[in-house]
């Protein structure tokens, strides 16, 4: 069941990317191209997604454990450091 749920979540995620056009290089690059014909769509995708997660995550985390597992994934403590920013910087360059 846990694996089936992963496939369903993947499917939903893929549908979301495709519906929003975020599987298209032209849409992503259109967003990053602020000096040209800027396409703000990606901001709306992120906004729609974060609106859902920001509201729903706290409700999910109120449970003692996830439905198909024994514990929630632990997140590393908050730290804004060189690996975080350097890695993110590399990702941005590669993303474009």
């Amino acid at each position: 069941m846990k694996r089936l749920s992963a496939a369903v979540c993947g499917l939903l995620f893929g549908l979301g990317l495709a519906i929003s056009g975020m599987d298209l290089p032209s849409k992503v690059l259109g967003f990053l191209n602020v000096a040209g014909r800027w396409d703000a769509s990606l901001l709306f995708v992120l906004g729609g997604a974060v609106a859902v997660t920001a509201i729903a995550f706290p409700f999910v985390r109120r449970r003692a454990k996830p439905v198909f597992d024994t514990a929630f994934e632990r997140i590393a403590p908050e730290r804004i450091d060189v690996p975080l920013l350097g890695g993110a910087a590399l990702f941005g360059v590669g993303w474009a």
Binding site: L12, A18, S20, G21, A51, A56
Partner: peptide, 10 residues
């Protein structure tokens, strides 16, 4: 699409 992605993550 964003809402789909948010739902999938949730």
């Amino acid at each position: 699409g964003g809402v789909f992605i948010g739902l999938a993550a949730t």
